[in-house]
Every structure is written in structure tokens, then in C-alpha cells.
Design a protein around this nucleic acid. Sequence first.
DNA 1: CAGTATCCGACACGATACTG
DNA 2: CAGTATCGTGTCGGATACTG
Lengths: 132, 132
Amino acid sequence: MTVSAGVASRSGALCPQRLTMEHVTSRWGVVVLIRLLERTYRFAELRRAIGATESVGQVTEKMLGQTLQSLERDGLVHRDVKPVVPPHVEYSLTDLGREAAVQIRALALWTDERRERVERARREYDLARAGG
Amino acid sequence: MTVSAGVASRSGALCPQRLTMEHVTSRWGVVVLIRLLERTYRFAELRRAIGATESVGQVTEKMLGQTLQSLERDGLVHRDVKPVVPPHVEYSLTDLGREAAVQIRALALWTDERRERVERARREYDLARAGG
DNA sequence: CAGTATCCGACACGATACTG
DNA sequence: CAGTATCGTGTCGGATACTG
């Protein structure tokens, strides 16, 4: 029931900053933050947008909900519930969230740009190990 | 036996950049990169240095070895083995590694600086949920 | 000193089903 | 539409013991 009961004990027990790090660098945290940097999204809309991104795969509703919830709890994401039926909920970044998202996007961009170099390094490493 | 067999299937199977992200943002990847940014370290020396840092806790030899190995495989860390007895091994950052470390350090610094705000947000969130 | 091997528990993540 | 509940699996990370 509690939002962060899970991740807390593994490595975030001491050092609450580490917990925040894990939220923003988590599998879907990264994707969500980058998406919300461009604009506000609704739940299903965000889900579809992520799924449509090549090579990122689909998010399950559970994981998206969980990710948004921990980001909201940390004060990085704002959840705006319009009192209408059918329900209409909008997610956006807070100022704090925007700061985080910018850094995460930079990091994601970096890994993207260095991808070739890293893959080459991995091949060389594996080859050196196998060959002797 | 293979270095990255483990982490590969969870979320890095597609999207090899994500794998790199997970290595550098991993529990000990962050700490190691930041440490190596300041200077070269030997294995046990690095282990002690990390353990000495308040609120970071101790690394097990296994995790430190694993972390260094994946970072080396990605071409971020250079491992220099001196052919002497007893063994003497030095770890340092490559140019690629330094680029990564700088970004990680910035992110770590950010979460550190924003810690109070995040904790306040968490308290408010939890209170709002519990109270009504 | 510099690691590797093995066992183990906690939990992230996913698939599926159900609710207001 | 916007989620929560439940179950199953892989694996991350720690403890301990052992090797060159």
C-alpha cells in the first residue's frame, strides 16, 4: 500500500538521496521524465506515447502508475485531477521535476551518442577474454 | 561467468544504451565513478575509501568487483595490472568514463542539494494520503 | 592483495484480472 | 479513462568462504 515500501530497504534505507536517484534513473522514470519535459500528458496518452517510441517497449499500467506515483511523492511530478466523468488526469513536471528531467535527458543523450564506442569496447573486452 | 549476463535480460535486452545507464547509475557505479574522478585507486583502497564515507555504507568485495568489471567492459574504467607480487592493480577513468562521471556527479550533487525539498514533499504526500 | 564462487532473501518488473 | 490487486519470475545485492 505504501508507495515506497519496496525500494527503501535495498539500498535507499540509509541515504535518502539514493532513493531519489533510483526513482529518476529507474527503467521508466527516465522515459517518463523526458516525455513530460516536452509537454503535459494524460495517463493512457503517456502510455501510448512511450509504447510508440521505437526500441523502448511497452510500459505496463502498473509500472507507469508506480513510476508516476513515486515521482509525484518526491515532488517531481504534478498530478492534476479534473473532477469530470469519465476521469481526466493530467501529469506534468514541477520546477523540481524539470531540473531533474533536464539532467536525466542529458545523461540519456550522452549514452545515446556514445553508444557505438561503448559497444566497441564491449566487443573488444569480450574478445580479449575469450581469445586469451 | 559472463560479465553482463545478469543485468541484460531485465531491461537492457532491447536498447543497449539503457544497459550503460544502469551500470553508471547502479548502487555502486555512482560511488565508484565519483571516487575515480578525484584520482586513481587500488582495489582495497577504493573499498576502504567508500566505506569511510559517511552514510554510504560498505561495499562487499563482490559488488565492487562486479561494478568495476562492468564499467571496464563498457570502456569507462581502465584496469592497470602491475606484474608484481603481491598483486598490484590500479583503477582509473578513461576519457569516456570521465565524461560519464562528470554527469553522474552533477546528478548526485543535485539530489543532494534538493534533498530537503524532496523530503518535505514526501512528508506532505504521505500526510495527505493518511489524513484524508 | 585482488579478486571469484556459492548461497540466499528482498523486491523490481511484468502479465493478468478487476474496480470506480 | 485511470488506475489497484494479485501472482510469478528473474536478479540484484549482501554474507560468507575460498583461491592465486
